[in-house]
């Protein structure tokens, strides 16, 4: 008797399909969020940016900032990153824990 593969493999198959759908949704949502978060940033060069967070960054976040560019420091809920890589910045902007990303303006 040949076993019915269709019904027996339903749970693992549905799990994998569900996982793929969730990952695709997260990717699409991340792209939309990234575009919105970086709306005010000129990404043609290597921009200096200020990243706002609602919490004090930990090692996890500092490593992310260092991947993006030269991390200048943290004060009053904001991290300053100089000469940031646009691609890395787009990737970071997909993260839901990022509050806002704005251009860094140096006081004259």
């Amino acid at each position: 008797m040949i076993p019915s593969i269709h019904s027996a493999w339903r749970t693992p198959l549905m799990t994998l399909i569900g996982l793929v759908v969730v990952l695709a949704l997260v990717a699409v949502l991340g792209r939309v969020t990234s575009a919105r978060t970086l709306a005010g940033i000129d990404l043609t060069g290597r921009p200096d940016v200020v990243i706002s967070l609602s919490f004090t960054p930990e090692r996890f976040h500092l490593e992310k900032f260092q991947d993006v560019g030269r991390y200048q420091g943290w004060s009053e809920g904001q991290a300053v990153i100089l000469s940031s890589d646009p691609e890395e910045l787009r990737g970071l902007a997909r993260s839901y824990w990022i509050g806002a990303i704005e251009p860094h303006e140096v006081a004259q």
Partner: peptide, 10 residues
Amino acid sequence: LLLRPVEQAT
């Protein structure tokens, strides 16, 4: 979701 169903299926 993975191991037990695979075992069930085989």
